[in-house]
């Protein structure tokens, strides 16, 4: 039973990774860039939700909505001012710019909000429920996280596969020039992708703060790296890949912490990543691109 409880907790953690990984993977799929500032958008989302809840005393739902909206706008602004002028630049220049944006957001947050850790208010009483005659205890938080993640996955899959914008996104990720010839506004599509990823980051921020309860301006960096790993794990550019990669990473991390070693869990997680990439060089669900001569 202990195993099952670890497994479900791992799925909870993995769901948060999966939502963050979606932001990485969609942006990579369409703009072919590693958006290192994504983790810091999460942090901004966490602070927005925090101030909405504690200072302005908005309801939980309104606070989350404001956080999502603000992060969406932030994502569009970052794309417009930092990445758009570099559309034709080398990928390394874009990478460095993304790192610059990440430093900028982190240091701005340190100046605006201070470096002291903030305590996130309890959104739901930490109630647990038992199954199998009390042998398995689960918290509603974990369950809620998993449900939110699955819901997001379903909605996103429908959006990408059924709507016109989703079709445009898929077209742009395949071939930007051909998409433009078909009358798709490539610039707008890329902006929409950034907006969507950043909005998801805000939701991930709230879920992350519910689990860890305290946070600082560097909140986003470690989950950011982990989620990025999850995206690569599942095959970067693939939406189901991000989901699978995130869940697996969360489960592996929780199980190694429980059964092997807490201190070495990071090392083991990254080792698993390397082994997976050696066997499948484009990730679990990534497409293999054949080289043309």
């Amino acid at each position: 039973m202990a195993f099952l409880s670890y497994l479900i907790n791992g799925m909870g953690l993995g769901s948060v990774y999966a939502i963050i990984a979606l932001g990485y993977t969609m942006v990579y799929g369409i703009a072919k860039m590693l958006n290192f500032a994504h983790g810091d958008v999460i942090m901004i989302g966490a602070y927005t939700a925090f101030y909405c809840l504690t200072v302005f005393k908005f309801s939980t739902f309104t606070s989350i909505l404001i956080a999502v909206l603000l992060c969406t706008v932030l994502g569009i602004l970052i794309e417009r001012f930092a990445y758009k002028p570099l559309r034709k630049a080398s990928s390394l220049s874009v990478l460095i710019t993304a790192i610059g944006v990440s430093y900028f957001l982190q240091n701005l947050a340190q100046i605006l909000f201070g470096t002291n850790p903030k305590v996130f208010p309890e959104l739901m009483r930490n109630s647990t429920f038992s199954l199998f005659d009390g042998q398995l205890t689960l918290s509603y938080k974990t369950l809620l996280t998993i449900i939110v993640c699955i819901l997001i996955m379903i909605l996103l899959t429908i959006f990408v596969n059924k709507t016109k914008t989703g079709k445009a996104m898929r077209a742009c990720s395949q071939d930007k020039e051909a998409a433009q010839l078909m009358g798709i506004n490539v610039d707008n599509t890329i902006s929409i992708t950034f907006a969507l990823g950043s909005g998801l980051a805000a939701i991930a921020a709230v879920l992350l703060c519910m689990t860890y309860s305290t946070f600082t301006p560097t909140l986003g960096s470690m989950p950011g790296i982990k989620a990025f790993t999850a995206a690569v794990f599942g095959g970067i550019g693939s939406i189901p890949g991000a989901f699978v990669g995130g869940l697996l990473l969360g489960i592996i991390e929780t199980l190694t912490k429980a059964y092997l070693s807490t201190q070495l869990s990071d090392a083991i997680v990254f080792m698993v990543l390397i082994i997976v990439l050696l066997i499948r060089p484009t990730g679990l669900l990534g497409k293999k691109v054949h080289e043309k001569v």
Binding site: A82, A89, I96, T97, G100, Y103, F104, I111
Partner: peptide
């Protein structure tokens, strides 16, 4: 003091934008 890393990051972004400006 506190603003130094902020300024550093802005300089970094600006250098990238300027050097890649067609």
């Amino acid at each position: 003091q506190d603003y130094r890393m902020l300024i550093y990051s802005i300089i970094l972004i600006l250098i990238m934008l300027v050097t890649n400006n067609q």
